[in-house]
């Protein structure tokens, strides 16, 4: 079994990986022509936070991971203790 696995691993082809990556990427790009939902959410969420906290670009990290069926939007905002008063 382990020998077989070793063999199939060494014979693994790169084209299926290319195909899958393209399918995921193009599905997202086609779906987002005109309106990119994660971009809209990102802007609106940041706008809401900015109403209450003085947003400092250096203290905001936005990450996206577009997967086959879902996208993960991750927004990290550092909120200093005195931020609420400052805003």
């Amino acid at each position: 079994m382990s020998i077989l696995r070793l063999f199939t691993r060494s014979a693994r082809r790169s084209a299926p990986a290319a195909r899958e990556r393209l399918q995921v990427l193009l599905a997202h790009e086609r779906a987002s022509t005109g309106s990119d939902l994660t971009a809209i959410l990102r802007e609106e969420i940041l706008a809401v936070i900015a109403k209450h906290v003085q947003l400092d670009g250096d203290r905001v990290t936005v990450k996206v991971d577009r997967d086959e069926n879902v996208s993960i939007l991750e927004i990290d905002v550092e909120i200093p203790l005195d931020a609420a008063r400052a805003a």
Binding site: R21, V24, L25, R42, V62, K63, V64, D65, R66, D67
Partner: peptide
């Protein structure tokens, strides 16, 4: 895409 970061582009 060539760098393998296409799923992570935000800005």
């Amino acid at each position: 895409l060539v760098m393998g970061a296409e799923r992570r582009v935000v800005y």
